[in-house]
């Protein structure tokens, strides 16, 4: 890697800017193994007005989703050395911008809440754990690990077109996480909630969600499984 790296970072502060613009930064003394988040923190030392969310620095809290050279990803899991210069950083697309790289995630979380993302059991609970075989538990792998970073939903054209009606890949992945759970007893209710032309069926298997997921999850496959369950329900 060269010793200096060039960035173009989208800036916007509604108190002073009429429109977002790209600002250039140069960073010297790049350490080997440096992640994009480390670099942004160094830039913030030069210019503390640069604003972005971040926290754990290891890809589990889901705070630092952003659009990196045109693709959504987590800054903390993106090695600088993997990026072509100038590195262009923008907020994730399709969401209202609050400031700089920080977007308003309200809609995203409303869809999440709308899929009833919690285990529903109607029977009285046993004194000990609800039994689940390792094979039944394996069905939750690839689903429960979602960190709600929003990379997938904000890269989905179907969501851009219908952000108020289409649940989006992240919420649908969680919907399936509970449909797939052998302990859950609300399958019919969940499937009914997802029926109709928009909530799930706006997915056109464009599969941007799969490409960008920093945890390697596959919302498109989850949506496919939900459709199969609905079909089975109908016949």
């Amino acid at each position: 890697m060269t010793s200096s790296v060039r960035f173009k970072i989208q800036r916007y502060n509604p108190e002073q800017d009429s429109d977002p613009y790209l600002k250039e930064y140069v960073l010297e003394n790049i350490q080997p193994g440096m992640m994009l988040r480390d670099a942004l923190l160094k830039i913030k030392q030069q210019d503390e007005t640069l604003s972005f969310r971040h926290s754990c620095g290891e890809g589990v809290c889901g705070s630092d989703a952003m659009n990196i050279n045109g693709t959504n990803g987590l800054a903390c899991l993106t090695p600088l050395s993997s990026l072509k210069q100038p590195i262009v950083i923008r907020p994730v697309p399709g969401m209202p911008i609050i400031r700089d790289l920080i977007v308003d995630m309200t809609q995203f979380f409303e869809h999440y809440r709308a899929v009833k993302p919690y285990l529903m059991v109607n029977d009285p609970m046993p004194e000990a754990e609800l039994p689940q075989t390792p094979e039944q538990r394996d069905k939750l792998d690839g689903l429960y690990e979602c960190i709600l970073c929003g990379c997938c939903t904000t890269s989905c054209p179907s969501f851009w077109w219908n952000p108020d009606k289409f649940r989006g890949p992240a919420a649908l992945l969680q919907a399936y996480r509970f449909l797939a759970d052998s302990r859950d007893q609300a399958t019919d209710e969940r499937l009914q909630d997802l029926d109709g032309p928009y909530r799930m069926f706006r997915c056109h298997t464009i599969m941007n969600c799969v490409t960008v997921c920093p945890k390697g999850l596959n919302p498109t496959k989850a949506i496919h499984h939900i459709k199969q369950m609905m079909l089975k329900d109908m016949v």
Binding site: E129, D181, R183
Partner: peptide, 15 residues
């Protein structure tokens, strides 16, 4: 567990 935590499981179905 009743609240939904996906604990890993043993062959006998326990946590």
């Amino acid at each position: 567990e009743h609240q939904g935590v996906p604990f890993s499981r043993l062959d006998n179905g326990k946590i």
